[in-house]
Design a protein around this nucleic acid. Structure first.
Lengths: 341, 341
DNA sequence: TTATAGGATGGTAGCGATACCAAGAGAACG
DNA sequence: CGTTCTCTTGGTATCGCTACCATCCTATAA
C-alpha cells in the first residue's frame, strides 16, 4: 500500500467494523474497551480478538465529542527552556499519564496577551483542565475561565484571589526569608538582582520580600542595590560587577532568578574574588548545578516537582469525580545554606 | 451562576446558536471563521458581532471529527528534564504555533515499551503528526506508523532506514570528530564517558565514533578507558576520578552526555587539578553553561534549535499540502574549541 | 434581452464515538 | 409457576462541526 493512500486514511477502522467482525453491537465494543467489567467474558473475548486482529485504535476525538469529556490537560508556562519548569512539567506529565490523561503544552514567552490567546486556543481544543504558571492574567483570561468553568490551577506564585485553585509557594516570603538569612549571617550590604519586573508578579513579590527583610533587619533600603537583569549567566556576572563598582562595600548578592547566581559565581572565579570571602552569593531555586558548583551555592529550595505533582493530582481527582473546592495550597520553601554564604 | 453549573457545561454555545443570532446559516459562520475571504463583508460582520457578543469558542473537537483533520502534533522525548530537549521543544512549539498547530508532549523515560504505549495513545488522539526523539523502535511502533500513515519525524540520531522523515546529526560522526580533535591537539590517552548504552543507539554510536577516531589516530582502543555513567554532575566527576585512578597517564576526558563534563570540571576545581593542564575536558552538546564555566569547556555544538525548527517545518509544510517525501536531513554539528582542551 | 459563468449562501448528511433507554435473559423469591 | 429484580445487550439519537452539492444572485457576454 502506498504511503499516500495511507495518508488519505483509506483504511481507517472504526468501532462498527470491529462490532461487525466480532458479531456484537458497537455499544458492546465501546463498553468492552472502556469498562470491561460491565461486559460478559465471552463478549469481551470476541471484541478483544477483533481489536487485535485489525489493530483497532479507538478514535478519541469522536469519543470526546460524544461524551463531552476530554482527557487532555493544557499547560501554559512562560518558557519551556528552563529547568524549573521542566521539573514541574515532568511531574505533571507523570501523574496525568498514570491516570490516562495527556498534556498539551504551550509557552507564553512571559507575554500576557499571548497567554490569553493560548488559553483561548486550548479551550477551543476543549481541554478538561488548565495549569497556568502565572497568576497575573488579562481580563480575557479571567472571563474565559469563568465562562467555560474549566478547572484551573495557578502556580508560580500564591495569588491573593485565585481564579480557581492554586498550588505554589510565596515569592514574597521566600525572598524575605533568604534576605533575612543573609542578615543573620552578618551580611550588611546585600545587593539584589531580579529578573524583569514588568508583567511579572513573581519578580515583584521577590523584590518586596527583599525590602521587607531589610527593614526588619534595620538595614537601609537602598534602591541602587537592586538591579534588574534578564536571566542568563552573563547577565548575572555583569550585574554583580556593576553592583560592586557602585557599592564597593557590598558583601553579599542575592540573585533572585534563573542562572544569575551561577553567572556571578563564574565571574568571581574569573576575577579571583573569593566567594564568600570577598562577596557572598545566594540564589533562588535549587538547580542541581548549585549543589555541585565550587563553592556550592546557598539557595532556596522550591519544591517544583511537588508543585507539579499536586497540581496534577488536584486536577485528576476533580476530573475523576471529587467535589470541586477553591483550594490554595502553599507548598512552602526551604533555605539551603551552603558554602557561598 | 454557580461554578458547578458551569462545569456541567449548561451554557455551551454552539455554532448554530451563533448562526441563529447572526441571522445566517451555520455554514456561513463556519466559513466566516475559517476562511473569511470566502464570505461577503456583510456576513462576516454579522458573524463577528455575534461571536464577540457571546464569546463563542468553536469546538475544535467537533471540527476535527468532521473534517478528519487535527491540528495537534505529538512529541515524544526520552525526558523532559533536559535542556537539550527543551531547546528543541521550544523551536517546535514556536513553529507549530505560528501555523495554528498545537503540541502534545509525552516522555518515554528512555523506555521503548513506553514509547510504544505513547505512540498508540497519541494516535488515538488522532494527532496529525509525530516527532520522536529516538530512532530505535519496537515493532509495535513501526506497525502503528505504517498502518496509520501519520507523518513521523525522527530526531536524535540519523537512522539508516527512517520510519518516514528524519532530522538530526550523526552521533557517530560527532563523537569521531571530537575524539579526532583531541588527538590533533596532542592528547594521547583519551578517556570516554558515555551515558547508558542499553536501548540507546545514540550512546552506542557515540562510542563507536570514539573508537573509530582512536583507530584513525593510531591510538590503542582500550575498553577500560570507556566508562558508562548515568547523566548528572556527580556521575561525571566520579567517572573522571575513576579513570584517573586506573589510568594515571590520562590526559583528556571526553564526556559524551548531559552534564557529565561540567561535573568533571567541578571535581577538578575541588581537587585542584588544572584543566587542561592536568587533564583536558571535552563535552557533547553546547549547553550555555559550558561557555561560561571557568575554564570554558570545549564541546560539540549540536543545532538543537534548528532540529526542532526544521522538524516542525517539515511537518507543517506536509500538512499544509506539500507532497510527502522520505527526507533525511543531516543538520551537522560543529566543534567549539575552548579553554578546557 | 437572454444566456452563462462565477461567487456567495444554505441544506443535508455524515464524521465515529457515547448516553440513554428499552428489551431480553437468567436468578431468586414467594 | 409467575413475578420481580438484576445483569447484559442492542437500538437510536445525538455531540458540534464540516464536506458536498444545490441554489440563488449578480455580472458579463452575446
Amino acid at each position: 500500500m502506498s504511503r499516500k493512500a495511507k495518508r488519505n486514511g483509506g483504511d481507517d477502522i472504526k468501532m462498527s467494523d470491529i462490532a461487525r467482525h466480532a458479531g456484537v453491537s458497537p455499544m458492546t465494543v465501546s463498553r468492552a474497551l472502556r469498562a470491561p467489567s460491565t461486559v460478559s467474558e465471552k463478549m469481551r473475548r470476541k471484541v478483544d480478538a477483533a481489536v487485535r486482529e485489525f489493530g483497532y485504535l479507538p478514535n478519541r476525538i469522536a469519543g470526546s465529542l460524544s461524551s463531552k469529556r476530554s482527557n487532555v490537560v493544557g499547560l501554559i508556562v512562560p518558557s519551556i527552556q528552563n529547568s524549573l519548569y521542566a521539573n514541574m512539567i515532568q511531574a505533571i506529565s507523570d501523574v496525568l499519564r498514570g491516570n490516562g490523561f495527556h498534556l498539551m503544552i504551550a509557552n507564553s514567552g512571559h507575554r500576557l496577551d499571548d497567554e490569553e490567546a493560548l488559553v483561548s486556543a486550548l479551550l477551543a481544543q476543549r481541554v478538561c483542565g488548565l495549569v497556568l504558571h502565572n497568576t497575573m492574567h488579562t481580563k480575557g483570561v479571567r472571563d474565559l475561565v469563568a465562562k467555560t468553568g474549566v478547572p484551573v490551577i495557578e502556580t508560580g506564585n500564591l495569588p491573593v484571589e485565585p481564579l480557581d485553585m492554586a498550588v505554589s509557594y510565596s515569592n514574597f516570603e521566600a525572598a524575605r526569608a533568604m534576605t533575612a538569612h543573609l542578615g543573620r549571617l552578618g551580611y550588611r550590604k546585600i545587593g539584589f538582582v531580579t529578573l524583569p519586573l514588568r508583567d511579572n508578579d513573581r519578580s515583584e513579590e521577590r523584590r518586596s520580600g527583599y525590602f521587607a527583610a531589610l527593614k526588619e533587619l534595620g538595614l537601609p533600603a537602598d534602591p541602587s542595590l537592586v538591579l534588574e537583569a534578564p536571566g542568563g549567566f552573563s547577565e548575572g556576572g555583569d550585574a554583580l560587577v556593576r553592583l560592586i563598582q557602585t557599592h564597593p562595600g557590598l558583601d553579599a548578592g542575592f540573585f533572585a532568578g534563573d542562572v544569575l547566581a551561577v553567572g556571578a559565581l563564574f565571574e568571581c572565579q574569573r576575577r579571583g574574588w573569593a566567594v564568600p570571602g570577598r562577596v557572598a552569593i545566594a540564589s533562588f531555586d535549587d538547580l542541581d548545578l548549585l549543589r555541585h558548583a565550587v563553592p556550592t551555592v546557598t539557595t532556596l529550595r522550591i519544591p517544583r516537582h511537588e508543585i507539579g505533582r499536586r497540581s496534577a493530582e488536584l486536577l485528576v481527582n476533580l476530573l475523576l469525580g471529587a467535589s470541586p473546592e477553591r483550594i490554595r495550597i502553599d507548598v512552602g520553601f526551604e533555605i539551603v545554606q551552603r558554602e557561598s554564604t
